[in-house]
Design a protein around this nucleic acid. Structure first.
Lengths: 254, 254
DNA sequence: CGTCATGTTGAGCGTCATCAACAGGAGTGG
DNA sequence: CCACTCCTGTTGATGACGCTCAACATGACG
């Protein structure tokens, strides 16, 4: 395979984490990304109502899926990281029902629908993996429903940290040492409040309560969880719902 | 085609609402349902942790997708009606992360995974439609996230009625006359509270507030919306997110 | 006639939202 | 370099919304 910094690589790596792609598929994917664009934080990549002709692939940065209510309130419904294709549904539906936006500076690739369709027809296994991608999304969305509806503010926030820690570790972007985990956390409290459905002020206070438990802390855009097990217990976190995203043993990672 | 009361028919009808299936696919589906089972209300069809060997097809009744927290609280994350295959993900993931349960008495068919896989291999268009089914689910889940996180109790409840009214009308199970819509509503307030993430008592009070607006009423297990537009405005309901489920023009319906 | 499930109502309290103010750091222009 | 602005995080005060506990009403069913 060619250099690590080629955009396609991020995609191929991610797909190979989910399933073992035949090398001919890897090769066929070499040039799918027709265009790469970079964004500042808080920019829309695709917006509610758009009728995209390309699918986006996240190459770098944190991305949110979100909806904006009439009153202007924004609700983040999912977080996405590098390697993910968040708008596969645009292949099937006429207009998008939500926004996909950057949370941080980000780099995004674009695959023409026609090209993707053709590839999936040629390699049904590819269609299956992309299907599975959407199932991962759906499983996470369901857990978020529970999180938003049924957990107190502190647990709700803790749960997001547990989920992100788990997923980032799979991407090779969180470190674990004994009971401690640690990872970059570029979100502002405003963004976090949009994800938790809490007011900014209350998010701030809950976050401080969470810090007071000594189970975790945020400093300098970095989350440190001091006792993963205890935090997971506090949050009521059960990683089963992420199973479809868990990398296969022996899959290539960073 | 054979009699309306054959189980497969419910499935085929539903799939044909989403896309135009070649008749050979219709025929291939004739005998996919290996088994039909009936359930009382509030029974689990498949449970958290199960490793199903069949996919369920709802033939009749109201079904919920739900998760139960450690503390025993149940959160309903989706409602499903006849024709739908709610656990396609079991084709890909080892163990289920949530329950699929009956809300009312229900009749459910089961398709062996192996058979379904073989059919999808033979007819890629079938795989595509099922993929699209999961995308519909995901779109609805996202809107529920917003509903649960960002709307007040009255709006939250109103929004569910608006969604159900729209979807049931597509299934031919809601009637519309001028500004008025009406449909069967078999859920108890307890079940509704599990879907809205509110306490039973507060669900009751919000429901009465909603009735006080004169925009809708529930009597005898039947919802009547007196002014659909106004209720939709109150709820902040925008049906765009349901687009992927909207029947094609000229699709066969009841 | 009693039991059980569901719906309704009251009272009191806790969680979370809102409004407001201020502190600190980053960036900008004078 | 300082003054200014903007963004983010923090804290206080107050009130609204929703929860909990409790009681009672109603209808279905035995």
């Amino acid at each position: 395979m060619s250099g690590v910094h080629q955009p396609t690589n991020t995609l191929v790596q991610r797909l190979n984490m989910l399933a073992d792609l035949p090398s001919e598929v890897d090769q066929a994917l070499e040039n799918v990304i027709a265009q790469v664009r970079t964004y500042a934080a808080n920019q829309d990549i695709v917006s509610q109502g758009d009728q995209p002709t390309h699918c986006a692939v996240i190459l770098d940065g944190w991305i949110s899926r979100n909806k904006v209510l009439k009153e202007g309130k924004r609700q983040i419904t999912a977080l996405h990281f590098a390697g993910v294709t968040p708008d596969l549904q645009s292949l099937f539906t006429p207009a998008l029902d939500h926004n996909i936006s950057t949370l941080t500076e980000a780099s995004v690739g674009f695959i023409p629908h026609a090209h993707l369709r053709e590839l999936m027809e040629r390699f049904p296994v590819l269609a299956q993996i992309f299907w599975r991608e959407t199932l991962v999304d759906a499983a996470i969305a369901r857990e978020w429903e529970v999180n938003l509806a049924a957990r107190s503010s502190v647990k709700r926030i803790a749960h997001i940290f547990c989920e992100v820690a788990t997923r980032l570790e799979w991407f090779g972007k969180a470190t674990r040492e004994g009971a401690t985990m640690s990872f970059q956390w570029p979100l502002t409290q405003i963004q976090l409040s949009e994800a938790t459905g809490l007011s900014v002020v209350h998010t701030n206070r809950s976050l401080m309560q969470l810090r007071a438990t000594k189970l975790m802390d945020i400093t300098q855009q970095r989350v440190t969880i001091f006792d993963v097990q205890k935090l997971e217990a506090l949050a009521g976190f059960n990683p089963d719902y992420l199973a479809a995203e868990e990398p296969r043993k022996g899959s290539r990672q960073n």
